[in-house]
Each structure stands twice: as C-alpha cells, then as structure tokens.
Design a protein around this nucleic acid. Structure first.
Lengths: 151, 151
DNA sequence: CGCCATTTAATTGTATACAATCTAATTGTA
DNA sequence: TACAATTAGATTGTATACAATTAAATGGCG
C-alpha cells in the first residue's frame, strides 16, 4: 500500500459506517412498499400511525420527538392523513400553540389491517435473534448519544 | 399483559428494527451537515464524490449500483456537481446509451479538503471497535441479502 | 437486413426531509 | 401589567428518493 492509498483510506465509502446505514434503511423501506401499498400508507405515514395507534392523541411536537421529524415534514404529512380520514387536527384549548393530533375510529380500524405488515417484513430480513438484538441495541445507543448531544 | 397488548405487539415502533435504522441514518447525516457545508456538498453529493474519487470515471449505472440510487436521483445531482465544476458528463462513444461521469482536476482537488470530514465524524459517534465492526458486518449482510433477492 | 426486446438515461409526478423564517400564543419578569 | 424572550406550528426553499414512463441506442434473431 502506497502513501496515496493510506492518505485517502478514510474517504473510501467501504470504510464508512454511515453509508451502509443509509443504504440499508432505504432498501428496507423499499421492501415495505408493496405491503404498505395495500393499506394505502407510505413508510413515513406508517410509522406515524404506529406511534398514534399507541398514544391515540398527541401534539405535533410529541409526535416529532418520537419520530425524529419536525413540523416541516409532519405538517403536510398529517394533513394527508387527515384527508384520508385517519386522524383529526385541532388546536389545544389550554395552549393554542399546540396542535393535537387524534386518531379517528377509522384510523384505529386500520390497525388490524396493518397487522400483516410486520409479519411479512419479518420474512424479508433474516437475521439471527442475536444479530437483531445487537443491532437494535447499538442503533439506540447511537440515537441516545445523539439526543444527549442536542440537549 | 392483556390480549390487546399481545395482539398489537408487533406494531409497536419500539419493536421495529427498521425505525432505528431509519432514524440513525438521518441523525448521522444531519451531523455531517456542518462539516459538509465547509466543502459545499450535501451528503448525497459527498458519497457520490467518494465513489468517483476512487474510480475517477464511471457510468451513471455503475455509480447507481454502488450508491443504491437510480437515474431519477442521480441525473439532477450529477448536473449540480457538473455545474460546480467537479465532474464532466459525456456519452460513451462505444455505447451512446451510457453516460460517462468523470471527475475533473478540481473535483480531485476537493478530495484533500474533504479529508477532515471523516476525522470529525469519527469523534461524533463513539462506538467501540467491536461494536463498529459488528454493525458494519450486519448492515452489509442485510444489503447482501437485498442484492441477492433482486437479481 | 428488419424489427422487436432490452438497456440506459432522462423526465414526470409524488412524497419526504430539513434548514431557515414567519406568525401567533404563552411565559417570565421587571 | 407591559414587553421581551421563548415556544409550537406553518411556510418557504432546496435537495433528495423512487416509481413509472419516455426516448434513444443496442442487441438478438428470423
């Protein structure tokens, strides 16, 4: 290995951790598409509904902190979900700055139709339970560092 | 835990592997921004240049298979990099369907200015070498499965 | 040779993402 | 209580992503 190789070694894409993370994320989201098409949601809409299914009602701010998304992304996305009849958007009485997002009955009903999605996806990525567990922990470790450094 | 909890367990965002992958990818890319701003590149432009720095000249198709991106994303991105003077775009003489992307001298010169980027980023994510190695292998394992299933 | 299938980019349309800015509501405080 | 600082969403502008379609070039085959 000559000097030039050594010098630029860190700039090789194969030596980056972020790139496979970025590529993996996109490829898995791509694999979601045929399943999500059946319930009429995009991936971002799906994870938004997942958080709402568990909480039923929350502010845009709370939703964003769960999803790592800001109002620039959420506002138009929530308007689309509202147009589909899956949720309602209304200002809080206590604090008019807060917009409360609440899942409708129709939105809750979609939850049953979505049950097959994680089942089908589990077949696509075949990691051992150990690998999956390790991956899960390490990703949340990175996300945790991120949160600390921002607050 | 009641029946309802059990039924929807798989639809909890905390039980998904894709979500932390997606969130991690975005958060790390966000951390790149201040450094990449200094060399005038976005993250996607940066990884594109990284592949080109190693190969100097390649078709859009080849570039896309390295980056997991298609012409819909690459065409406008490459036009921007061309406008910055970092690369040239020209059709192949052998096969006019192929568009050859070649880094200019200016593009190669940027490589030296980019050396600090991976150095700074290494300070941001603090994983042990073992964790980083494991994460790397498992991500490429997933990407590998993906490639096999598509071809 | 002629023609159809394939291949490569470019284009079109839709949906994110996110920084930066703006607006309205609320809070802290002198 | 005025009023500056803060906060929450919405908006604006830029840059991806990607499916689907189009257009041009090439390859294969009768």
């Amino acid at each position: 290995m000559n000097t030039t190789d050594t010098k630029y070694e860190t700039l090789k894409i194969e030596n980056q951790l972020c790139f496979p993370l970025y590529a993996c994320s996109k490829e898995i989201i791509r694999q979601y598409k045929p399943f999500l098409d059946k319930i009429g949601l995009t991936y971002t809409q799906y994870i938004t509904m997942m958080v709402l299914w568990e909480n039923r009602s929350m502010t845009v701010k709370e939703l964003g902190s769960h999803l790592y998304l800001d109002s620039g992304t959420l506002t138009p996305l929530l308007k689309k979900l509202e147009a589909k009849g899956l949720l309602t958007r209304s200002r809080s009485n206590k604090d008019e700055r807060n917009l409360i997002v609440t899942v409708t009955e129709e939105g809750m009903a979609l939850r049953d139709n979505a049950l097959f999605v994680p089942q089908e996806m589990a077949k696509c990525v075949s990691l051992t339970p150990e690998e999956a567990g390790f991956l899960y922990r390490i990703l949340y470790k990175i996300l945790g560092q991120d949160i600390e450094s921002e607050e």
